[in-house]
Amino acid sequence: MKLGVKDELCSGCKICQTICSLTLFDVCNPKRSALKIVGHFPAPGRYEVVTCDQCGDCAEVCPVEAIKLENGVYKIDRDECTGCGACVDACPKGAMILWRGDDVPIKCTLCGACMEFCPRGALYDADKPSEQAGVA
């Protein structure tokens, strides 16, 4: 599974963020999710989808080695994380998400929920591009 992104198809609905929060944390709170959507309005009129591509830069800078590679996915061990924020600064895509209620950043676990329910095909499995659900 690989998280593919087509910004130009994003309608800004935040289904991805909402299902992410329910899947990762058992809460309904798009602010507590591992991706975000930034609007660029009124001009040029598009959304930017900020997602993790599992590049591993976060793991490289983590001073306590709390971010570990498991089956191609980097995951934060919250027991070891000190909340220093080095990974947040190092992430080239701005995809280590800080939520006001927690010191530990939120990172994509590549669970696939967002791509399964993106109605626009803006998020899709880049390994299986023909299976995207969206209309666009």
Partner: peptide, 9 residues
């Protein structure tokens, strides 16, 4: 320019 949606649309 873009199909633009509301929350969870």
């Amino acid at each position: 320019v873009l199909d633009k949606g509301c929350f969870c649309c």
